[in-house]
Design a protein around this nucleic acid. Structure first.
Ligand SMILES: [Zn+2]
Ligand SMILES: [Zn+2]
Ligand SMILES: [Zn+2]
Ligand SMILES: [Zn+2]
Lengths: 146, 146
DNA sequence: TCTCAATTAATAATTATTTTCATACCTTAG
DNA sequence: CTAAGGTATGAAAATAATTATTAATTGAGA
């Protein structure tokens, strides 16, 4: 927990920015909710408990910043808003998501077997791949069996 | 071209809906622009040439409908709006997209090698996969070499 | 042709997000 | 200590994409 905060502080300093209480509180909430996929409004409500005076615009600004700093990543689940999750540095790429069309549950997939596919595409299309995003849609175990 | 229109008519009828001139014109524009990834506003502007009285809200509704009918698919390129393209029935899943972070060009990837990965996930997570969406981010040939 | 639900255009309303702006807060030079 | 210059903030206004409302129109089947 401390480590990520220190990384943020470091990267902010490089950019001439500061680690403010609002930014600290926002990052803390996202770290405490690892595995959730909170949207901006939800993050705002949670941060307000620690930091009641914070404004929604600041949360938006902070999330943008944290994404630029490569601390969190934005997820688009086609539900009309952006969601965020902490980036765990130990993964090469991010994990992926299974989205249940029955109950809207989100399941995280740890497997990442796109390396071969990426290599093939890089050669075939002369394209330098930096990252990818992959979502699967379907029915979860519960929804399938009823 | 005729075929897709007939499929739409068929599916609409099943649902008790009608194939109106507005819907026909919208689908035509999307079919004529295969390979493009038009957003709603762009589709609206193009449809207006054939069908000047059409309203933007109708285009929104029609695109929603065409997506439900599995005739077109929505693409999210994180540029703040939805884009659409015709679904070519001869592909098992859809093709994927390479998004250049240098010039925002979109390149279509015909390769789809996710079948093995899907099987593995279906077993591991007891999840029934219906579809997937995959995007790659990086630098295109032009942007890479300059 | 007649009937009626489906559809539409125009408009207003929503929703998520961004921008504006005046103020507050630091850090540093004088 | 105090002023200057920069960053950050909250509140409110502005934007942009999308959806809801409503009253009028249309088109397919009897
Ligand atoms: Zn489910
Ligand atoms: Zn996740
Ligand atoms: Zn490029
Ligand atoms: Zn495409």
């Amino acid at each position: 927990m401390l480590e990520t905060m220190d990384i943020l502080k470091e990267r902010l300093k490089e950019k001439g920015s500061k680690l403010t209480p609002q930014r600290r509180a926002t990052l803390n909430i996202i770290m405490e909710n690892k595995g959730e996929h909170l949207n901006t409004e939800e993050i705002y409500e949670l941060v307000r408990k620690d930091c009641p005076e914070i404004g929604l615009a600041t949360v938006y600004r902070t999330l943008q910043l944290l994404e630029e700093m490569d601390i969190i990543s934005r997820i688009n689940l086609d539900d009309g808003c952006s969601r965020y999750e902490i980036k765990t540095g130990d993964e090469d790429h991010q994990h992926h998501h299974l989205i249940c069309q029955g109950c809207n549950k989100i399941i995280e997939v740890k497997i990442d077997l796109l390396d071969d596919l990426e290599k093939e595409i890089e050669k075939e299309y002369d394209f330098d791949i930096k990252d990818h995003k992959l979502k699967f849609f379907g029915l979860c175990s519960d929804c399938k069996h009823k």
